[in-house]
Design a protein around this nucleic acid. Structure first.
Length: 951
RNA sequence: GCGGCAUUGGCGAAAUUGGUAGACGCGCUAGACUUAGGAUCUAGUGAAGAGAUUCGUGUAGGUUCGAGUCCUAUAUGCCGCACCA
């Protein structure tokens, strides 16, 4: 019987749907296992063959775990808020929700064709009010909490208020935007607005003034990469730096825990390293320099306190609040000019243009150790956002300070013996100190330690740890995102009551900012007026006044994706994000599969969000993803035809790839992308090419054998003539004509072939091009596998057959556990090959094989499993166990060495003793050949290891 | 600049604890079947050599009876961070 994959796959996909085979319950006697894919943003382009790579891997693992007797949670949903749908809405007026729903439907259809075992009952969409209810709720909780550095956890802001009322800031060690000090009396004397302002300094979700790129013409904030030389990339409108009031999340408060948590999770080293890098812990000292002739202290942070004897100047960031205090009247004009110049540059330009710029403030500071007077400069190479925004400059041992000192002709004092600083600074932390008072003669590492101790002992500063991790800006001037559950009173934000959440996204006439420059939500008539009144009137806690504006920004993309894995545990719960029972059952994601592109975005925010909810006692694990696998990207493999552009070219002639280096064509051809779907194994489908685009309708070819159409005109293309295409690996994209749609592959080869082939392509974690050339081999295997089941016998299997089966069980089990699915496919092929040579059609062998292949190729497995007489699904079968005894004979391979060089191997019984081994080896024919009649001087035998014969 | 990962046939790649490198697939070669083949099947396929054999895992060393695997240096490629004091 034919292997009719289309019929088989349709039939069983229908069966799985009807039987709800993949529905998962929250209660089970079985142990749980939670496998999650990073949910996709449903783009208009649909899925290409690269997207399912990770999904197939997670599906294989889920099915394997289920066969092993686990209750497996394997959900799928959609990250539905996002820019593309909104941009499309601006252009066409089509509501983003309509576009998004259409795209989701398409995604579901494509995913279902591949035969994934998702529990669609648990599907979530971030744009669903029922879902974003909990996004808003979590934000509200962050608004109501602060981070206590001593307790190392988030605590209710009410506790902070209670403390302020009794003790002011005394004894508070909290994460904060700026350092505040006040007494209880002062706190109690503040009016409500002032108190709210103070609390904002501590809240985990807080509102603050942040510098952004604002484009008045476009009426929106632009990201740095959307701005070039002060103009918007789109339209070329001027862009200005503007400070805007934006929501932020105090992610930086969690820096330490985010860093330490990495040691307890099973992620790849490279990804952990990326996160460590991003969090950027650095240990150093904070010291105070006093401005000469004043009492003004300037705090600096340094990791190289050992170099303090080499400080020859100080630098302040242009945005530093110290600047205003240190500028002298004579320098005022120069400083103002410089600040103005800096203001016009975006962060990006500042980074790309590394010329040293700066200005002298006119003031001097006193070094606390050397008492030397050093000039204070202002320069944008010092960043306001890191450390204290002020540095002590040691030009001899810091390359940036060195460049600045050279540009401004400042002193450079070498501190390390033998370091050559005539051309560049010596930044390495090695060598012996000199010119350094108490540190002279010490190694750098010891000097750092000594100086830290000295600083602390003499109260000159304190040892401090700094993190590079910044707070996350949480406001977007966009329509298609979660509204904030926030209204404003007296200019200060307040939460709308929890029982009014979710605050739903209102309808608007247009998706652009309002004329007054408010975000698109400002266009909402119903939401902005009626709802608002209703909200206020119904809530007795708020004065019965009318106009309380709602927050018009929306949340960024990462808001909805930060806790979605928790929601899958209990997706239809109207009362909580996740119930305690559900959370305690599923705990955390056991296996998370997704791309590395989220290393410093989603994967940091999720961990932060999770830790916050953990602090509140709402969930039981402080890390969301126990194990993470990063699947590689599938790149496109583009194909080219080569248009002849030499003498007499008509633009209509194409040269076969194998000929383009011939002298007559060399440098006279131009590669042209050709749709990979009309190329097979690099051979162009001539007719399809002529039909592909009007400009190619009359295309002529020089074929691989050097002949031309003209030699044989108007009779179509003889089949022996081939046009060979060139190829290149590029990003998979429409413009390269290299996008391969999984639907087409499923249509042509079936979902099982697609699944097997995607795994066979190479290691899961590696990036690789999609190359269709090998897919036939995998498909052939499935057909041969199918053919083995033509007639089934109930005979007892032979030892060889059992050996082949058990070897495969062992190999495939090992592979799945280690995520090397790519080597399982060959294991199946070898087994199939061995068994068909043995002409094996025995149930006892084939039945376990069907179960073994079920995670990889579920449709064919389901069909064959039923053909073998089972009534239930193969999903509910039991994963076969292997018997080591059936695989290995009791033998060990001994390497036989002559004078230390291994010549051959001999299989011997494990239990043989030293003397017996020696006896067998010495009477062996191969040994005799290598000895060539000579008597060995010595024979060394290590049982179970080696035999070395010294001649 | 800092950090991480990689480098094996014509190609994608295997080699789980240091033990006969190149499994498996593609491609290629030859043959069978066929009106035909972009179908199917069989055999061969790292390099050199008629052969025994020799040489082969980016390069150079080292450890070891034995190294793709461990160590040192180095080159190349990819990824992340980057004026972070």
């Amino acid at each position: 019987m034919e292997y009719n994959f289309q019929e088989i796959e349709n039939r069983w996909q229908g069966y799985w749907r009807r039987e709800n085979l993949y529905e998962v319950k929250n209660k089970s006697d079985k142990p749980k296992y939670y496998v999650l894919d990073m949910f996709p943003y449903p783009s208009g382009a649909g899925l290409h063959v690269g997207h399912p790579l990770g999904y197939i891997a997670s599906d294989i693992f889920s099915r394997y775990k289920r066969l092993q007797g686990f209750n497996v949670l394997h959900p799928m949903g959609f990250d539905a808020y996002g820019l593309p749908a909104e941009q499309y809405a601006i252009q066409t007026g089509q509501h983003p929700e309509v576009t998004t729903m259409k795209n989701i439907a398409r995604y579901c259809e494509q995913l279902n064709k591949i035969g994934f075992c998702y529990d669609w009952m648990r599907q979530i969409r971030t744009c669903d009010p029922e879902y974003y209810h909990w996004t808003q709720w979590a934000f509200a909780k962050m608004f109501e909490h602060y981070y206590d550095n001593d307790a190392e956890k988030a605590l209710p802001i009410s506790e902070l208020i209670a403390h302020f009322e009794k003790h002011g800031t005394e004894g508070i060690n909290a994460a904060q935007s700026e350092e505040l000090h006040f007494t209880a009396e002062e706190w109690n004397a503040m009016d409500e607005k002032r108190q709210q302002e103070v609390l904002m300094n501590y809240r985990i979700a807080y509102l603050s003034d942040t510098k952004v790129n604002w484009c008045p013409a476009l009426g929106t904030v632009l990201a740095n990469d959307e701005v070039s030389e002060g103009l918007s990339v789109r339209g070329g409108h001027p862009v200005e730096q503007r400070v805007m009031r934006q929501w932020s999340l105090r992610v930086s408060a969690y820096a330490k825990r985010l860093l330490e948590g990495l040691d307890r999770i099973d992620w790849t080293d490279s990804l952990k390293e990326t996160q460590r890098n991003w969090i950027g812990r650095s240990e150093g000292a904070e010291m105070t320099f006093v401005v000469k002739d004043t009492n003004l202290p300037i705090k600096i942070f340094t990791t190289r306190c050992d170099t303090i004897y080499g400080v020859t100047f100080m630098v302040l960031a242009p945005e530093s609040e110290y600047v205003a205090h240190v500028v002298t009247p004579e320098q005022q004009q120069a400083v103002d000019d410089y600040l103005d110049q800096v203001k016009r540059r975006t962060e990006r330009e500042r980074i790309s243009d590394r010329r040293m710029t700066g200005v002298f403030s006119g003031s001097y500071a006193i070094c606390p150790i050397t008492n030397r007077e050093v000039p204070i400069y202002i320069s944008d190479y010092v960043l306001a956002g890191y450390g204290t925004g002020a540095i002590m400059a040691v030009p001899a041992h810091d390359s940036r300070d060195y460049a600045f000192a050279r540009a401004f002709n400042l002193d450079i004092i070498p501190l390390i013996e033998g370091a050559d600083i005539s051309e560049q600074s010596f930044d390495a932390k090695e060598g012996k100190m000199m010119n350094s008072g108490i540190l002279n003669g010490l190694e750098v590492k010891d000097a750092i330690r000594t100086m830290k101790e000295y600083i602390e002992a003499n109260n000159l500063g304190k040892v401090k740890v700094n993190y590079r991790l910044r707070d996350a800006i949480f406001s977007r001037q966009r329509y298609w995102g979660e509204p904030f559950p926030i209204y404003y009173k007296d200019g200060m934000p307040y939460l709308i009551p929890y029982n009014r959440m979710p605050l739903c996204l209102p309808e608007v006439d247009k998706f652009l900012p309002t004329e007054t420059g408010e975000p698109p939500l400002g266009n909402a008539k119903v939401w902005a007026w009626d709802e608002r009144r209703q909200l206020i009137v119904e809530n007795e806690q708020i004065d019965n006044k009318y106009i309380f504006p709602l927050e018009l920004n929306t949340m960024p993309g990462f808001a909805g994706s930060s806790a979605y894995y928790l929601r899958y545990m209990d997706p239809r719960n109207d009362n909580e994000l996740v119930s305690r029972e559900a959370n305690e059952y599923w705990q955390q994601v056991d296996l998370y599969i997704g791309g590395t592109e989220h290393a410093t975005g989603h994967l940091i925010y999720s961990r932060f969000w999770n830790k916050f909810l953990f602090d509140l006692g709402l969930i039981c694990k402080d890390e969301p993803f126990a194990k993470l696998i990063n699947q590689g990207m599938i790149q496109g493999r583009s194909n080219f035809v080569y248009r002849y552009i030499g003498e007499g070219a008509t633009g209509n002639l194409f040269i076969s790839y194998n000929l383009i280096d011939n002298p007559e064509y060399k440098d006279k051809v131009q590669p042209v992308h050709v749709d990979v779907n009309i190329v097979k194994n690099d051979i162009l489908d001539i007719d399809a090419f002529r039909r592909w685009m009007p400009e190619f309708a009359n295309a002529e070819f020089v074929y691989s054998d050097g002949t031309r159409d003209i030699d044989n005109p108007y009779i179509g293309t003889p089949s022996e003539k081939q046009y060979i295409c060139g190829s290149a690996v590029e990003k998979m994209s429409k413009s390269m004509f290299n996008v391969v749609n999984p639907d087409d592959v499923v249509e042509r080869y079936g979902a099982d072939t697609l699944r097997l082939y995607e795994m066979f392509l190479g290691p899961l974690e590696q990036s690789k091009p999609w190359d269709t050339n090998g897919i036939d081999g995998v498909h052939r295997f499935l057909r041969r596998f199918w053919a083995m089941f033509e007639s089934i016998s109930d005979e007892q299997p032979t030892a060889d057959e059992l050996r082949s089966l058990h070897k495969t069980i062992k190999k495939v089990s090992y592979d799945i556990e280690h995520f090397s699915f790519n080597t399982s496919v060959p294991a199946f092929m070898i087994c199939q090959n061995e068994l068909s040579q043995l002409k094996c059609n025995k149930r006892a062998i084939l039945e376990p094989l069907v179960i073994l292949i079920a995670p990889f190729a579920p449709h064919i497995a389901e069909e064959l499993y039923h053909q073998l007489g089972h009534e239930t699904s193969v999903c509910d079968a039991q994963w076969p166990q292997y018997d080591e005894k059936l695989i290995e004979q009791n033998n060990v391979k001994y390497p036989i060495s002559f004078n230390g060089k291994t010549r051959f191997f001999v299989e011997l019984d494990k239990s043989l003793g030293k003397d017996e081994i020696e006896k067998i080896i010495m009477s062996d024919a191969q040994t005799a050949k290598f000895l060539n009649g000579a008597a060995p001087k010595k024979v060394i035998v290590v049982p179970g290891k080696i035999v070395n014969i010294v001649i």
